[in-house]
């Protein structure tokens, strides 16, 4: 999982502000990661609501 504290410091986000968002980012990452693992090889990007073949 991402070291959000280090990532925030690298972006010069004040530590106090980073503390507030890290739990949200951790939760988001834990929801996203299992979905990403299921992406089949060669899956294409979204290009509009009618293009999904």
């Amino acid at each position: 999982m991402t070291d959000w504290k280090q990532a925030a410091a690298a972006q010069s986000i004040p530590a106090a502000d980073a503390e507030k968002i890290i739990p949200v980012l951790e939760a988001l990452e834990s929801s996203l990661r299992p979905l990403v693992e299921k992406i089949p090889p060669g899956a294409d990007l979204w290009t509009g609501p009618e293009n999904f073949s």
Partner: peptide
């Protein structure tokens, strides 16, 4: 601040997931 910390890879993967979810 949250947006600044999300990686380009995660963004691109989200756009790929989006197409799958739309289908």
């Amino acid at each position: 601040d949250q947006g600044r910390l999300i990686s380009a890879i995660d963004y691109a993967d989200a756009q790929r997931l989006r197409r799958i979810q739309l289908r």
